[in-house]
Amino acid sequence: MGTGTRRETGEPEWVGLPGGLLTLRRLLLVIWTVLLTVATAVPLGLLAGPGWALFGVFWLVLLAWGWVLLGRNWRSWRYAERADDLLISRGVLWREQTVVPYGRMQLVEVTSGPLERRFGLASVQLHTAAAASDARIPGLVPAEAERLRDRLTALGEARSAGL
């Protein structure tokens, strides 16, 4: 579980996401694949013979693959607060790194859906005047999300630059 860093110069100090998001995503994956496995194996097994039920294994393979994939994706998400800008890095195959100067922030948004709330998660989204700057940090602990929001808003006000 990470807390924000405030090193002002040099290499950014990256902070990863807390484990809650991974748990949530893996849980969803397990629920869906198990449901699909049952939905595939049971009718096939009853109607076409027990051997056909093995087709349900396909979903279990998918589960194993997705399990690893989700873990890698979750590990790839990280962010760093530097003196003047926020860095967000993500993606395993398609890597993307975003730099948003604090002065360019128009609005900071903390959102939390019903499922996320149950798992104690919240995501922070930054909006600049450019719609294309997609700066979102998902799956934060609400306290950290709020801390980040307050800090970003304060810094954004201090360095405000608008368009």
């Binding site: 398609w94 993307e96 790194q97 360019r104």
Partner: peptide, 11 residues
Amino acid sequence: KVQSVRLAQGP
């Protein structure tokens, strides 16, 4: 005029 900078790299 730059609002944000992104670096993207596909596989």
